[in-house]
């Protein structure tokens, strides 16, 4: 009896999984974004291996089932980073129901020496408690930046430094395929519109 239920549960589970897969992205339909760039055919950001502020290892597969929007920055950044994070928080508010649950903001620090896990966590969560941050050793960060073709360099400022860096946000589908890039100049509404386009297909 128990076996039967288990089997049924497995079969039902498989059915749900199957539906899930069917409902997954079908790139054959093409993706037409109004504001952002379709990245489906770009060889970019295919892997990373970093840690969240709690010390858990995170790779792209950690985010399967959600739609991560990844971007790079540092917490000492006065302009682009808070603006991009504030925009991400607005995007999340513009998304409804399941779409909002799927959306996962991931902030990767380019300044692992100064951005301690505690600072990073407090920083991103100040914008939205659902946001997460990733960090690694300076070498690991350099590797990830290379993987994303993200430019960054330290610029001396007084007895300290600031960082010049790329400001583009990258969005993946629920199966970890890079789909969309959103430039810094787009507003939250424009980004949300393109995300909904992606979410309708995926």
């Amino acid at each position: 009896m128990n076996d039967l239920y288990t089997r049924r549960a497995v079969v039902a589970g498989m059915g749900v999984l199957g539906l899930g897969l069917l409902a997954g992205c079908s790139p054959a339909r093409g993706l037409e974004f109004k504001y952002g760039k379709n990245m489906s055919n770009e060889i970019l950001g295919r892997k990373f291996n970093l840690k969240d502020p709690q010390g858990n290892p995170r790779t792209l597969s950690s985010f399967y089932g959600s739609m991560p929007m990844i971007f790079f920055g540092f917490t000492q950044c006065p302009a682009v980073c808070p603006t991009t994070l504030a925009r991400a928080a607005q995007i999340r508010q513009l998304l409804r129901g399941r779409d909002r649950d799927l959306f996962q903001v991931v902030f990767i620090t380019l300044d692992p020496e100064r951005d301690t896990p505690e600072v990073l966590d407090a920083y991103v969560k100040a914008f939205d408690p659902s946001f997460t941050a990733l960090t690694g050793t300076p070498e690991e960060i350099a590797e990830v930046a290379k993987e994303f073709k993200v430019f960054y360099e330290k610029v001396p400022a007084g007895d300290t430094y600031t960082i010049s860096h790329s400001s583009t946000s990258y969005v993946y589908d629920t199966r970890g395929t890079l789909r969309l890039s959103l430039g810094h100049s787009l507003n939250a509404k424009e980004c949300a519109e393109d995300l909904v386009t992606l979410m309708e297909i995926c």
Partner: peptide, 20 residues
């Protein structure tokens, strides 16, 4: 703060830059 400076943000393509 220990150091106070005026900075200018510049956008060069998608790269955000800072200079004093």
């Amino acid at each position: 703060a220990k150091t106070v400076q005026v900075h200018e943000m510049t956008m060069n393509g998608d790269v955000m830059g800072m200079r004093e």
